[in-house]
């Protein structure tokens, strides 16, 4: 267990380094945004006279050297100050904090679901290799992998919400129903089904394909021959020997793709009017609210880092060689 703790500590250091770089990148992007930030801010605030702009410049230290501004910026970010949205007349952090739980709920559920179902389907296809069920899973995965998620979302909602009326088409909960306790949880769960399935479907396809390919490859390795030479049954060989080893590359890829999944929430939340950070990003794009957009960039990056630590721990639990390999 000491190994896992060490690994975890190592990952935290690495995460911190990545985070600092992202903050710097964020700062550079703020300055790369078109126009004088003070002018933009003034514009956003609705007053663009010279004096106000100069006052803003002084207030935000924009007349200082770039490095000093960077230091100030980093200091503020560390304290949780991500700037101020004049559009919404609120600090960016407050807006994000309010929206974060919905997005975490959506992406984390979709992530775990896609990983679990993807591995399951891929393993099933690998065991059935060459039969019709393998072909069916392969074709479905190929289709799901080629479909833009926002369109899948639209089509699913057209079918299950508009035509069949089984599930709510959008939103986080039934507005004005005033559910509490379990009823509320069930209500949210019903609202979650379509967005989670849509987001998970694409990555599930990816992991299913990967699991299948990985299992077929592992099956050819020497230790599987050893297992067969021991006279073990096919089920035990496939689960204990093949799948366990085949799952490692899938977890690695899942960690790498976590960023895409979190990014995909922008599209899903837009389609399903899910009141999270992704939906906020869409609104910020429409309103050209760069402060909020860059805040989202930072917060989603942190989310991805957390997802990565999660997958690393998962990997460390399965693979005893982890200390040596890294």
């Amino acid at each position: 267990m000491l190994g896992l703790a060490q690994l975890f500590a190592g990952r935290l250091v690495k995460a911190a380094a990545i985070l600092i770089t992202i903050v710097v990148l964020n700062f550079l992007l703020v300055h790369a945004a078109p126009g004088d930030p003070a002018m933009v801010m003034a514009g956003e605030a609705g007053a663009a006279d010279e004096q106000f702009v100069a006052q803003l410049r002084a207030q935000f230290g924009l007349d200082r050297p770039l490095t000093e501004q960077l230091a100030t910026y980093v200091g503020k970010v560390v304290q949780g100050d991500l700037g101020y949205s004049y559009r919404q007349q609120r600090p960016v952090w407050d807006i994000l904090w309010e929206r974060l739980p919905a997005t975490l709920l959506l992406t984390l559920t979709a992530f775990l679901l896609s990983l679990a179902l993807g591995v399951l389907l891929g393993a099933f296809a690998a065991v059935q290799v060459g039969r019709w069920s393998d072909s069916a899973i392969t074709v479905l995965a190929l289709l799901a992998y080629a479909t833009p998620i926002y369109w899948t979302g639209l089509m699913l909602s057209l079918l299950f919400a508009v035509e069949l009326g089984w599930l709510p088409a959008f939103g986080y909960e039934t507005i004005g129903a005033g559910y509490t306790g379990l009823d509320h949880a069930l209500d949210v769960a019903r609202h979650m089904v379509l967005p989670v399935v849509t987001l998970a479907l694409f990555y599930m396809a990816a992991y299913a394909r990967l699991t299948r390919a990985s299992m077929l490859e592992v099956r050819g390795q020497d230790f599987v021959k050893t297992a067969r030479a021991k006279g073990l049954g096919p089920l035990r060989i496939e689960t204990r020997h093949v799948l366990r080893n085949a799952i490692l590359p899938v977890i690695t890829v899942a960690g790498i793709q976590a960023g895409q999944l979190v990014g995909g929430s922008i599209l899903i939340e837009t389609v399903f009017a899910w009141p999270g950070i992704g939906r906020l990003a869409f609104e910020a794009v429409l309103q050209r609210d760069y402060q909020v957009l860059l805040g989202i960039f930072l917060v989603t990056s942190v989310m991805v880092i957390l997802f990565n630590i999660l997958t690393d721990l998962l990997y460390g639990l399965i693979d005893p060689r982890i200390q040596v390999a890294r």
């Binding site: 990545i18 992202i22 990148l25 992007l29 790369a32 945004a33 078109p34 960023g259 895409q260 979190v262 990014g263 995909g264 922008i266 599209l267 990003a281 910020a284 794009v285 050209r288 760069y290 957009l293 860059l294 989202i296 960039f297 989603t300 990056s301 989310m303 991805v304 880092i305 990565n308």
Partner: peptide
């Protein structure tokens, strides 16, 4: 690590 779609959105928007 950076969520790539978010970065693309930020870049194109800015």
């Amino acid at each position: 690590t950076i969520p790539n779609f978010v970065l693309a959105v930020v870049l194109v928007a800015i």
